[in-house]
Write a protein that binds this DNA or RNA. Structure first.
Lengths: 201, 201
DNA sequence: TGCGTGCTGTAACAAATGTTACGATTCACG
DNA sequence: CGTGAATCGTAACATTTGTTACAGCACGCA
């Protein structure tokens, strides 16, 4: 399918090589908006490629606390960092936000494919590394930073805060807590109001 | 060098292939105990293989908070998850605990080597995946769990707590806080004293 | 226009954790 | 036997964040 060519991972590889990959056992699956695509604890035996739609990755804690880990916008890979892991388990749940289309590509076929296509191998390694970078950054935020610093960090990566409730989930805080911190930062001149939201001062 | 054969990554590859890899620009370096081997923010252009000694990886926050992320015992790879990352930067500082010996292997040579040796590629992918798993677990702990739950988790992965001060650093807490929580858990019967340390009840 | 719905700010209180300080214990070493 | 260093438990207090509740405001819709 030409859908797959849009993803960076397969950008540099030849058409017939890609066709050979698709001859291996793999399938195309559609998910309606709101549908769970991956549960925490699920095994991950195929490379999942989100070719259409938007999804969210969330982590759930025992105490009901919930963290919005990442926004997933097509085209991109789902949970690439867990495809070759032991135990082969995803730690997040992935839910479709809009209607989604996902390709499931056989792991072993993909493994051989990478060996034959250096550009794909390179891109996949970069993808995994990016995930590592992403996760270690998150970990750092939560482990050694207070909420105010996380807000600051958020405003550097994203332009502004439009939905306090949403961002609170991403920062691992409750809405009233974030609201309070934003008020304080407003008073300290660290942020300014931007229409209905907030923006870096 | 035969030192390298001890690491899982190179376990399944032929001797002459390994020798060819070592003909590429790479070097062997020794670090005395206490020496910083990698600073946060350093670029990472070579695969670093710790073949001897013990080291520690730490993250530093702006506010002086410090987190002991991982114990590194030879033989293992150092910061494999950042070798192919962009930006090509390590987020932790790595310090030698005992005298250490580290091999630096040229990245591009290693990349070609992986293509020729499927077992190495496989092992490296598994290594990266394991790092992802490790990091996401840590992140989950810090983002959605309280200190008491982190202590519980620690006691499931490790047998017991011998040094309160050390473990506090690993859990991202201060020593008095951990001490207090341990006292509470003692009262609730969740842990028991084990000589000078603590153990799961 | 009036009303329900959803998001927001805010306040009062509770819980968790950090900060600082002090005394007790152990242990190596002179 | 003393003594200093390291570690630990603990207490009092400060700070941060969660919890719960309530009121305001914008918006869509009958």
């Amino acid at each position: 399918m030409e859908e797959l060519k849009r993803i960076k991972l397969f950008a540099g590889c030849s058409d017939d090589a890609l066709e050979r990959l698709l001859e291996s056992p793999c399938r195309r699956q559609e998910y309606p908006a709101g549908r769970r695509m991956l549960n925490a604890g699920d095994p991950c035996r195929a490379l999942m490629v989100l070719v259409e739609g938007q999804a969210e990755a969330r982590m759930i804690g025992e105490e009901g606390r919930e963290l919005l880990v990442d926004h997933l916008n097509a085209p991109m890979l789902l949970a690439p960092a867990f495809l070759f892991a032991t135990p082969n388990i995803v730690p997040v749940e992935v839910t479709a936000v809009t209607d989604c289309v996902v390709w499931h590509i056989n792991r072993e076929a993909f493994f051989e494919f990478m060996q034959q296509e250096p550009s794909v191998l390179r891109a996949f390694l970069e993808e995994l590394s990016a995930k590592g970078h992403f996760l270690s950054g998150k970990m750092r935020s939560f482990a050694v930073k207070g909420l105010k610093n996380r807000v600051f960090e958020y405003l550097e990566e994203n332009v502004n805060i439009t939905s306090v409730a949403d961002v609170a989930q991403q920062l691992g805080a409750t809405r009233p807590s974030l609201s309070r911190v934003l008020s304080e930062m407003l008073g300290e001149g660290l942020v300014v109001k931007d229409g209905k939201g907030y923006r870096k001062a």
